[in-house]
Amino acid sequence: MNKNSNIYQILYAAVMVLLVGTVLAFIYMALKPKQNENIANDTRKQILSALHIAAAGDAQVKETYEKYVIQDLLVDKDGNVVDSASNVAFDVQMKKNVKLPVAERQLPVMKCRLDDGSIKYVLPVYGAGLWGPIWGYIAVNDDGNTIYGANFSHEGETPGLGARIAEQPFQDEFVDKHLFVEGAFKSVAVLKKGQKATNGAEQIDALTGATITSRGVSDMMADCLAPYEAFLKKLQGTAPAVEPSLEPAAIEQVTDDNQPE
C-alpha cells in the first residue's frame, strides 16, 4: 500500500485521533471523582487557613473541616438566612455567582466554631487579578466587624509579585482590621503607602510591583462583602438603621493606618 497516498494519510490520522480520543476520555472519566475530591479538599484547606487552622495531613482535611465548620448558610441581602442545608454554602460556584447582579447573588456563609468556642463566619470572595481570577476566604468574628483571618489564592499571578497575595505576611495584614467604620460598611482597602481610602475604610499596604493584583484584592473585598452588610449588621446586634449612603460622606481623618502592624 502506498504510504504517501492521500487516502492512507487521512485514514491514518483519523483512526489515530479516534483511538487517542477514546483512551483519553476513559482516563478522564476514571480519574474525575478523585480529582474533584482533591479540588474540594483544596478549597477546604483554604477555608481552614482563613481560620488559622492547618490540617494535619491531606487525609484529615475533610475531617478537620467538618469538625470546625458547623453550619453552612445562604443569606439574602437583607441578612435573613434563606437556606441552611449541609454544604449549601460550600457548593456555591463563586465564579458564576459574582457575575450576577448583587440582588440575585447567593450569599454563602460558613459558620465555624473554634476550639475555644468562639464563633467565626467565613465569607468567600472572588474577583480578578492581573492574569486571571483571584479568590479568597475572609473569616469574620462574631461581632460582624473584625476580620479574624484571610486566605487568598490565585490562578496565575506573577510569581514574586502578585502571587504574594497567597503568602502569609500579606494575609496576616488583614487580621484585626474592621469592615465597618463608625457603623457604616467600608470594606478594607488595599492601597499604596501614603494613599488614603476616599471612603475612610481601614487599609493595608499594597504589594510592591503588583498594583493591579492589589487593586483586584481591594475591589474583590468591596464587591463581594458589601452584599453581606445587612447580615453583618445583624451580627453586630444593630438592625440596619438607614440605607447605606453611597456617597463618600464624612471622610474622617484616618489615623496613621498605613504602618504595617
Partner: peptide, 24 residues
Amino acid sequence: TVPTNIRIIVQLVVVAALVIIVQQ
C-alpha cells in the same frame, strides 16, 4: 506505518496524549 508527510503530527498526537494522561 507512519506516512512521512504527517509524521510530526503523529508524533505530536502521541506526546500530547501521554502528557494529558500524566497531567490527569
